[in-house]
Amino acid sequence: MDISPDSIVYWQWGPITLNATIVFTWVIMLILIGISWMVTRNLSEDASLSRWQNFLEAVVSTIKGQIKDVVHSGAEEYLPFIGTLFLFISLSNFLIFVPGYHPPTGSIYTAGGLAICVFFAVPVYGIAKRGIWGYLKHYISPSPFMLPFNIIGEFSRTLSLAIRLFGNIMSGSLIVAILLSIVPLFVPVVMEILGLLIGQIQAYIFAVLAMVYIASATRSHEKQEAKTNNSDK
């Protein structure tokens, strides 16, 4: 029984292994980029849109709306990163009903990779917004005693982000696999449906948490700015 798609290796050459995780990641990438490229080749500015354009616009504006709920302003800066996270996880979790498909998000490396990306994105956005000292100051707030906890929190939340996604998706696949051997009819379908739901929820949670982490690194700066603006006035 395969717990992880990493163990399904299609081709190996020394350290380079082409396992199911990478292959299906590429598949998802191809689908996403293909659709985007096809649809955005000829976009319409007018009121009459193609169905696909309308769909993509709806998706993008929904994601933007969600980001706006968290950061209130400057949603467009975070849109590509958060949007890509969500679309990738969402599609990868969505395709589990396809026979022979192994969701790459069910691999700890994929979830870990994404979490590492978030881990690095937080200081990148924070420094871009607040400057290096402003960003670093947020580790000693509200007091310098909090510095070790802040650092631990930084790592632990990245870990929890990775494990949450991986655990949920992996467990979903695992449950279906186990159930298939015990009750091969009907019950796995229900679990599959549940898995679809959980997959979408996880995609949403992952994206929103990433946004919250980034926002926490940039928002204190905004708060300070607002304070100085108010005192100036």
Binding site: I22, M29, S36, T40, P80, T84, F88
Partner: peptide, 30 residues
């Protein structure tokens, strides 16, 4: 499996760049 981890990070970054170019920028612009 460091290779898979790094490959996934790189994959994600590529996807990020391409989607930014092909999807988000264009859609937002339009």
């Amino acid at each position: 499996d460091w290779f898979t981890l790094i490959a996934q990070i790189i994959n994600f970054l590529i996807l990020l760049v391409l989607l930014k170019y092909f999807l988000f920028d264009r859609i937002v612009r339009i």
